[in-house]
Amino acid sequence: MKIGVVDIGSGNLYNLIKCIKELEVNLSLVNDLSELKQSDALIIPGVGAYKSGIETLQKSNIVEGLKNFAFQKKPILGICLGMQLLLGKSYEFGVHEGLNLISGTVRPIKEQTGWPIPNIGWCNVKIRNNVEQPFNNISDDNSFYFIHSYYCDVDEENDIIGIIDYGNFQIPAIIQNENIMGCQFHPELSDNSGFQILNNFVKLIRN
């Protein structure tokens, strides 16, 4: 059993890798197709810009591989930018095509929220009732760490598992369509609440 962390080329994978190691599961950094095929579940982490993220996936030649992985119903968890890459397209500095595993568009958070942008800090995520693993046992008074200027405008209401109130605006914080999952926040930086989600995700492939 192995979790693949997709290398999207930028920044800090240190914290995520440390968390997964604590869960005592095998881990590999995925930057080619053969590593991807050997994984039982994938995490697409997220720091950096949309364009460079998608370009790194293209250069590693794993865009189609990721889509097949999804089609085989194996679990994929996107974190922050990784979640945004799951959608169809993004308007971050131009227009860019995403993986289109969940229907929707990445857009800038509206200035009219009256709140600072980027959204940096801890927010309570309101999780809807009767959700499935790995988001089913998160406490109501949770806090997760967010750091983003763009958000996932998801087409299907059903794919939205949790939201945050940002000013007068609601931002999807957790999305899921069967085996495809995304968190706008960083579970690896979110103390106990975040660790719980990563633990749940690992359990998906342990069961």
Partner: peptide, 27 residues
Amino acid sequence: CFMPLTVGGGIKDLEDIRNLLKAGADK
């Protein structure tokens, strides 16, 4: 630590930034 870490001081170029991010800094 499982919380965000900001590091500053004496940064001279993009390489310094990359090295700190790789070491586990978030900002």
